[in-house]
Design a binder for these strands. Structure first.
Lengths: 332, 332
DNA sequence: TTGAAAGCGCTACCAC
DNA sequence: GTGGTAGCGCTTTCAA
């Protein structure tokens, strides 16, 4: 079903059909009626490819993320899709984690979209720069800036400072950090912020992080390593909630009580964190994605636009896992 | 940067450049070298639009889901993306829930993909049929079949039967069901299965479901309503885990102990369920998405292919919320 | 008010 | 081996 068949059926040119369908240009009332009738009868829908090729735009944009497992990325993507869809863009998603040749895949995605958001440690700065160099509107998410690209991240410093103050207030002095700063820019930022907060508070810097992946099993394994250290750390500060939940399991397995024998804190505030009673730092994940989509739109509409950088606020959420509190500080 | 510029630079025709780039057809070694050199220098990447238009395919497929909030859909999409990417397709996502004109959006998506997966109650059977009628390879996910379309769902009957047997074994006789069968085909299936299992076991059928949306706040509200009934139900059977978590909060708020005063069971086994100690039915969400992607591929490759129907197995997961058990039946 | 036609960027067939 | 060229389906300008 092409525009030609419609035109032929009505006995007009394809230009006229196009005008009617798009609602641009002037068309005689009667002609319009006949065209619309044929469109309806033939169930004509213009080919997106033909349209895009002629218009020179895809009306789509993409988001690249490490992987979708874990509620964190899912939420970001939801926020992104919601805004993008509102703005009339289709959304393409691309997970790179654990996949062969992520660079190629990102470059490939770049050929199907008008703009893209790139999250975390998915591809190298070089590839990001390469994509951006083609003139592709690009925004970076939860990732250090590259060149003059728009970048939206979430705060680690303020909440790390709050967290450390809170933990020191509990009287804790021996900390272990679980997570691999090399794995993700987020972890890097979180670890650095944690370390800086500790040092600024006059404490000795923490030992090197116990490196582990970003999931529950890895957290458990790292938790076991941490808790085997002597003297045993009083607090396990974890790169994200899943690692913290793993650490929780490790403690349980060793017969240690949380928080009496060891305190555990996470990062993100995924749904499970509430039920595990995990003290954590809440991330505005939806807002992260929504912001990226909005900025992308701005860049696609206005050619020259000042570079944007924004650090979204996070919130320390105190629950039971970091120590006994006089009253429940968070109920709901 | 088009194929013309590359051709001109090298002094060959675009046909030759195309041959080299695609790796088809015979090209003299020396010519190939010079073309590749130019491609490299000019950073030429063929336009996806031109390519697709000429090839007559998008090399992309789409998945439509009610919304992305809640870990359930996210996991399905992950499974889908993983397989689709492996198969060389880009993935477009579309959330319909709470959006204006979902039909139009789905039809729109259909113009950009070679195949699509449609989940749950996103669009009417009519629209599904309309999409399928265009020849678009389509598979239905967690949704009743429409016409001759491939459909993959998860089992509700067997696990509902197991669940009911287990609950009856606890001595419970008064059940309340929380969730709105009209909201999603999943809920319909779950409620029907629950009801049938109860009746088959010789119990009286449950009262009508307490209708509520699919999230924690709605679950809490419905939980309050349920627990205010007299006589108070002994078990709240919930449409999904989020509703169950809400019901849990409601019980807590009323000062009721779970499971001593009231038992609560959910459906899905999202991550939070483990930490909330929720008895639930585990869904193979990744497998659901992966299966859809695989079937779609089959349909796109082989034109005529027998209709497929599959019901993936689910697993009853017993935790604390359904009653005291002699020993921990699930540790990890 | 309408039509003809020039692209948009590529693939693949047919000649040479 | 290589080039010419006819599509693929649409938008939009220019004429009529």
């Amino acid at each position: 079903m092409t525009i030609y068949e419609v035109a032929q059926r009505v006995g007009v040119s394809i230009a006229t059909v196009s005008r009617v369908v798009r609602g641009h240009g002037e068309v005689a009332k009667e002609t319009r009626r006949r065209v619309l009738e044929a469109v309806e009868e033939l169930q004509f829908r213009p080919s997106r490819l033909g349209q895009s090729l002629a218009e020179g735009r895809h009306a789509a944009n993409g988001i690249v993320f490490p992987d979708l497992s874990g509620p964190y990325y899912a939420e970001v993507i939801l926020g992104y899709e919601e805004v993008a869809a509102e703005l009339g863009s289709s959304v393409l998603i691309l997970a790179t984690h654990g996949r062969a040749d992520p660079d190629r895949k990102v470059l490939d995605l770049a050929r199907r979209v008008d703009g893209m958001a790139i999250m975390g440690r998915t591809v190298s700065d070089g590839v990001v720069a390469q994509v951006a160099a083609t003139g592709m509107p690009t925004v970076l998410l939860a990732r250090p800036p590259v060149g003059e690209l728009d970048t939206v991240t979430t705060d680690s410093d303020a909440s790390a400072r709050e967290l450390v103050a809170h933990l020191l207030g509990h009287g804790y002095r021996r900390f272990a950090y679980l997570g691999d700063p090399a794995e993700s820019p987020d972890v890097t930022a979180r670890y650095d912020a944690f370390r800086a907060a500790l040092v600024d508070a006059g404490s000795p810097p923490p030992r090197a992080p116990l490196r582990c992946a970003f999931d529950v099993p890895a957290g458990r394994e790292a938790g076991q390593r941490a808790l085997a250290r002597s003297p045993r750390p009083q607090v396990l500060v974890c790169a994200n909630d899943e690692v913290a939940l793993g650490a929780l399991a490790a403690a349980q397995q060793l017969g240690l009580s949380v928080p009496d024998d060891v305190a555990i804190v996470g990062w993100d505030d995924v749904m499970a964190a509430r039920y595990a009673g995990l003290t954590t730092v809440r991330q505005p994940m939806r807002a992260l994605g929504a912001t990226a989509a909005r900025w992308l739109q701005d860049r696609m509409v206005v050619s020259r636009f000042p570079v944007r950088r924004e650090v979204l606020q996070t919130q320390l959420v105190i629950r039971e896992s970091c120590g006994q509190h006089p009253v429940d500080m968070e109920v709901s």
